[in-house]
């Protein structure tokens, strides 16, 4: 029983972790992309479609990543090249993504999906309890862990990571140092889009292998809150992702048990917890100021 619950928690947390890891890199570069929900749902519909047509869920994963990355280019073009307001453009991306995915996915409704099968590590997966949890998971789980480690290493140990953080904290200085701010930000935005797309692909290939309109159900927004919660640090994204995932799953189990609380109130929990967590993290103004990339959401036009 505990094992089954933990398994579902892992499956529910993985998309949150992946999407938040991507958005973290985008925000570290000083770009606030509120379109995570839209990129996620586009990734989900692309992944489902590609997997359905080809029959290979891995092709679906790739399609989800590409779909999310391409869709984020729209955001990049508007906010980076045309210097449009990032908040408004992010909202536009979400609204367009929800609409477009509904239109694209119209013929997918009710079709049984193709499930991404778990990768079974020989021997290791036979370890009682730990084996099925950690060594009999699908590719997206391993990717999510690799992503957290990779993003941490990339941001804090690599030269490009240092450049990204410099751009996020002071795009003017970075520009003066000869760093190509706009190009780097484009790449950071696309990385965020690719991750959101992968997270969406996880939803339509692993979590519930089918296409349902609006199936992201606010997870993109929760991923955004997760980045704030993690104060822009990858390891904390992992921890936070699992807390949010656990809340979502435990309330479902509580509903199934029927603990006397109306199901709607239990369904509110993930959203209410997000608000509470934001309060706890944000109430200390000074630590927030220290952690937030200083140029987050600010427009940049290179002076020549």
């Amino acid at each position: 029983m505990l094992e089954a619950i933990l398994l579902t928690i892992i499956t529910a947390s993985t998309p949150l972790v992946i999407a938040a890891a991507g958005e973290l890199v985008t925000e570290r570069a000083g770009v606030l992309n509120l379109g995570v929900e839209g990129m996620m749902i586009m990734g989900a519909v692309c992944a489902f479609g590609a997997a359905h047509v080809t029959g290979y869920p891995v092709v679906g994963l790739v399609a989800g990543i590409l779909g999310g990355a391409l869709f984020s280019l729209l955001f990049g073009f508007l906010t980076l090249t045309l210097v449009a307001n990032q908040v408004a453009t992010g909202l536009a991306l979400t609204l367009l993504g929800l609409g477009l995915s509904g239109q694209i996915g119209e013929s997918f409704v009710g079709i049984p999906g193709v499930k991404l099968q778990p990768i079974v590590f020989p021997l290791l997966s036979d370890i009682p309890f730990v084996g099925p949890l950690l060594f009999r998971q699908d590719l997206t789980f391993y990717l999510s862990i690799a992503l957290i480690i990779g993003v941490h290493w990339f941001l804090f140990k690599s030269r490009t990571g240092l450049k990204i953080r410099a751009i996020g904290d002071s795009h003017g200085s970075a520009h003066a140092l000869g760093i190509n701010v706009i190009r780097t930000r484009y790449l950071a935005v696309m990385f965020g889009g690719a991750c959101a797309g992968l997270a969406g692909a996880q939803l339509s290939l692993v979590y519930t292998p089918q296409w349902v309109e609006n199936m992201s159900a606010g997870r993109g927004w929760i991923a955004l809150a997760l980045v704030v919660f993690a104060s822009w640090r990858p390891a904390r994204v992992l921890a936070g992702g699992y807390i949010f995932g656990a809340v979502g799953i435990l309330q479902l189990h509580a509903q199934a048990f029927g603990i006397g609380v109306p199901s709607q109130f239990l369904s509110m929990l993930p959203y209410a917890v997000t608000i509470v967590v934001l309060i706890i993290i944000s109430h200390n103004r000074r630590t927030t100021l220290i952690n937030t990339p200083a140029c987050l959401g600010k427009p940049f036009v290179p002076d020549r």
């Binding site: 307001n85 408004a88 609204l95 367009l96």
Partner: peptide, 13 residues
């Protein structure tokens, strides 16, 4: 909804 999203995109650009 596609139309509505497109409108906002074009307005912003």
């Amino acid at each position: 909804r596609v139309f509505q999203g497109l409108i906002l995109f074009f307005v912003l650009s």
